[in-house]
């Protein structure tokens, strides 16, 4: 196995007698771009919440870089949600500088003088990289949906996380904007050598961007007690440039939920 960054060992998630995830075993290598697909309710978002640290597994363990993952969010894991990822009361520049200010000033969470200028310069560079250099002083509500997601990506990358977690990051965007964002995230992945985990509804998007696609679904199904069996990664496709087309069985899996047009 290659250089393993994230290791999920025999993880279960249960709420009372409802089993959401069962026996998930996965290893994610450093530098990979893993797309996660699956029908609604198949636990793919729960899986991502585990990695973010929003919840802890009921059984099993998760290791990041060989160390047990803390069950609360931390700066080693960057995140971009579908919505509400950016702070409405800060300008674009301040949104990106936020992470730098938090690490630079324990008590006030604010930098001053030269250090502030250095942080703002770094933030401005990051914003220029995602194509927002003309909106440094705009508030998020003045930006379009696509621009807000660019901002959220810049904000997450400025702390140089080990792993970037994307939860339906382009789900709310128009098709044209979504194509632009695909280009941007692909470039950033290659440039920064990022490790990315992306949950998406869109199977085509998953196969286009990822170099590995995981499909979550229930392995077993009890029609009388559907909640008693949890999901796990039922398909695991390593992708090369040659097999970038989703296989038929996977399209059938998501049949209940047609992928949105690109």
């Amino acid at each position: 196995m290659k250089d393993v960054l994230l290791s999920i060992r025999d993880v279960w998630v249960e709420y009372g007698d409802r089993i959401v995830l069962e026996k998930v075993n996965l290893e994610i290598s450093r530098g990979s771009f893993v797309s996660i697909v699956g029908p609604s309710g198949a636990g793919k978002s729960t899986f991502l919440r585990l990695i973010i640290g929003q919840e802890a597994p009921s059984r099993g363990a998760i290791f990041l870089n060989g160390e047990p993952l803390q069950p609360e969010p931390g700066p080693d894991r960057g995140v971009v949600f579908q919505r509400y990822s950016v702070f409405p009361h800060l300008t674009a520049l301040e949104n990106v500088a936020f992470g730098l200010e938090c690490s630079g000033s324990m008590f006030l969470g604010r930098l001053f003088g030269k250090r502030r200028k250095a942080a703002l310069d770094e933030a401005a560079q990051m914003l220029a990289r995602v194509g927002l250099s003309h909106s440094l002083n705009a508030y998020p509500s003045q930006l379009s949906g696509g621009m807000q997601q660019r901002l959220a990506i810049a904000q997450a990358l400025v702390r140089k996380p080990r792993i970037l977690l994307l939860d339906e990051p382009f789900g709310a965007l128009d098709p044209g904007i979504r194509l632009d964002m695909h280009g941007l995230i692909d470039e950033l992945w290659r440039e920064h050598g990022l490790t990315i985990l992306m949950v998406t509804h869109d199977i085509k998007e998953a196969f286009k961007l990822g170099d590995r696609v995981l499909a979550f679904d229930k392995r077993r199904h009890d029609p009388h007690a559907p909640h008693r069996f949890g999901s796990s990664a039922v398909y695991d496709f390593p992708l090369t440039e040659k097999n970038r087309r989703p296989p038929a069985e996977l399209l059938a899996l998501s049949g209940a939920e047609p992928s949105r047009a690109e």
């Binding site: 931390g74 700066p75 949600f81 950016v86 936020f98 992470g99 938090c102 959220a152 702390r159 996380p161």
Partner: peptide
């Protein structure tokens, strides 16, 4: 989402 984002940016 905002609370989680702030924590992933290192905020106490």
């Amino acid at each position: 989402e905002q609370m989680v984002k702030a924590q992933t940016l290192g905020a106490s």
